[in-house]
Design a protein around this nucleic acid. Structure first.
Lengths: 135, 135
DNA sequence: CATAAAAGTTAGCCTAGGCTAATATATTTA
DNA sequence: TAAATATATTAGCCTAGGCTAACTTTTATG
């Protein structure tokens, strides 16, 4: 009597690949959000936002530049490229769907904020569509 | 007119900490599952299960040993400690709740397997309780 | 406007989690 | 049982994502 298998190798591989982009998505989403309040998005804003050191932000911004998601010159502010903007908006839409869905099923705001943050990168578009339809 | 903030620094910090244990949980869960079919769980089984090299498994098993989740001697099979067993069962329960919840809202089996795999580490016990009650 | 404070950068370190290649041990099977 | 195959381990490499400390540049202020 074999138990249902909830996972298998291939799914792990997929989730690892996704993982690689998680931080990039979080960053562009953060940059987009911060730029609603401030005209210039600086290193220090992201440092405060994510609670990590300026050095870490600096390193990660270089990855974003390499990935053509942002542009930035030394000591200057950070700007999303059109790719970056698209990814940020996409990310935000997914984030919002998950957040609202969690609220809909009765999860308190604070917890829904935390959970949606963690979950947004691990939900397929199929599942997102269902969640959207249930909001 | 400020937009709702879906995320904030502290949630990121929390999710990073969780991340560190993800692989440990995945491993104990896998070991528990494999041991249902085979008496001995070996390196090679996990290598096939996760689709990563034997060397990687070997390294990670050492982390599990350090974390007192498994015991294993050179060239011998891997056994969950009672801590490991507890974590595995816990993990599996969470996994199962998410999987069944996704099925309940209409997500196809294959996709529910993938998504629940990714999501299980990012859902609070509060949200899990709600999901459980809705299955 | 000079200097102090704030922000940005760089270098060097760490852990986690991958890999390959070489080697060691176990297991199968001719 | 000896040789071939399978599995396990080790060493050394890589990237991502953290950190601190030292230094540079920018910004604010006396």
């Amino acid at each position: 009597m074999k138990k249902t298998r909830f996972s298998s190798p291939k799914y792990f591989k997929l989730s690892k690949k996704q993982n690689a982009n998680e931080i990039l998505e979080d960053y562009v989403e953060a940059i987009e959000e911060i730029s609603k309040d401030k005209k210039d998005v600086k290193n220090i804003d992201l440092s405060k936002y994510f609670g990590v050191s300026k050095a870490t932000i600096n390193k990660n911004i270089k990855r974003l530049i390499k990935a053509k998601l942002v542009t930035s010159e030394k000591y200057k502010s950070i700007h999303l490229t059109s790719n970056g903007k698209t990814l940020a908006l996409d990310s935000n839409v997914r984030h919002e769907i998950v957040f609202k869905f969690l609220r809909k099923i009765g999860v308190p705001k604070k917890i829904a904020e935390e959970d949606s943050e963690g979950m947004e990168h691990h939900i397929s578009s199929y599942t997102l569509k269902i969640m959207k339809s249930l909001i």
